[in-house]
Amino acid sequence: MRRHIARTTMMLCGAVSLAAVVGTASAAPPGTQPVKHHAEPVIVDCFWQPEVRPDDFILACGDGNSRLISLQWSQWLPNSATAEGINVVNDCKPYCAAGKFHPYRVTVRLDDPEPWKKRPQVQHYTQITLVYTDERPDGYERTVSYPLWN
């Protein structure tokens, strides 16, 4: 019974934390450079905010079980951007709420900028590729690519 109460308490704390983040989504996250006149492409985050060279980025918007942290951008060009960082992934064992997060070093590449549907005058990257430089999560290939939302 105590274990159930502890687990429920942890879940509620996580929900409150998520609500706090969602509630302040209009504020620019620390370390994120504001977008200036949209002269350079942006990456659109889970809260539909354009970002340039973010320090972190959530890959799994629905549950937060995969995110990029400690991003160090070496380039941010009109056609692509490259960074080194950490992909923190939940192993979801025995299930996601009880899983543990594990860090994996990655090289990140953003590609294929197109006009953003929300603001057609803004170019946004539409493809993200992760290359795991050392270990990688179970079942992941060394290189994985995902489309980014529009």
Results as ranks from 00 to 15, higher is better:
Phe47Trp: 07
Thr107Glu: 10
Glu40Asn: 12
Asn87Ile: 09
Leu77Asp: 10
Tyr132Thr: 06
Tyr125Trp: 02
Val35His: 02
Gln72Met: 05
Thr143Phe: 04
Val106Cys: 06
Pro50Ile: 06
Phe57Lys: 04
Trp76Leu: 02
Cys96Ser: 08
Ala39His: 11
Met11Leu: 13
Gln49Glu: 14
Thr8Gln: 14
Gln49Met: 10
Val22Met: 12
Trp116Cys: 03
Val89Trp: 10
Pro120Cys: 00
Asp45Arg: 08
Ala19Phe: 04
Val88Pro: 03
Leu12His: 10
Ala60Glu: 13
Ser80Lys: 14
Met11Ala: 13
Leu68Gln: 00
Pro50Leu: 03
Cys61Leu: 04
Leu77Trp: 11
Lys100Ser: 15
Thr24Val: 09
Ser145Pro: 08
Tyr132Gly: 02
Cys61Glu: 01
Tyr104Ser: 05
Pro50Ala: 06
Ala6Asp: 15
Pro54Val: 05
Val35Glu: 01
Tyr146Lys: 12
Gln72Thr: 14
Pro137Leu: 08
Gln127Glu: 11
Pro120Glu: 05
Pro115Ser: 07
Ser66Leu: 12
Glu135His: 11
Gly99Met: 05
Cys46Tyr: 05
Val16Tyr: 11
Ile86Phe: 07
Met11Thr: 12
Leu77Ile: 00
Trp48Ser: 15
Glu114Leu: 08
Pro34Cys: 06
Tyr140Gly: 08
Ala81Leu: 00
Thr24Ala: 10
Ala6Arg: 11
Val21Glu: 03
Val106Ala: 08
Val88Phe: 01
Leu71Val: 10
Leu130Tyr: 10
Gln75Trp: 02
Cys46Lys: 09
Lys118Phe: 15
Pro41Cys: 05
Pro29Thr: 08
Ile5Ala: 15
Pro94Arg: 06
Ala6Trp: 12
Arg109Cys: 08
Thr82His: 14
Asn79Thr: 15
Asp91Ala: 01
Arg105Glu: 11
Ser26Ala: 12
Asp55Ile: 06
Arg142Trp: 12
Leu59Ala: 03
Asn65Thr: 15
Gly99Tyr: 04
Thr133Asp: 10
Tyr95Phe: 12
Val35Pro: 02
Gly139Lys: 09
Cys96Ile: 10
Asp91Lys: 03
Glu51Gln: 12
Cys92Tyr: 04
Ala28Ile: 13
Val21Thr: 07
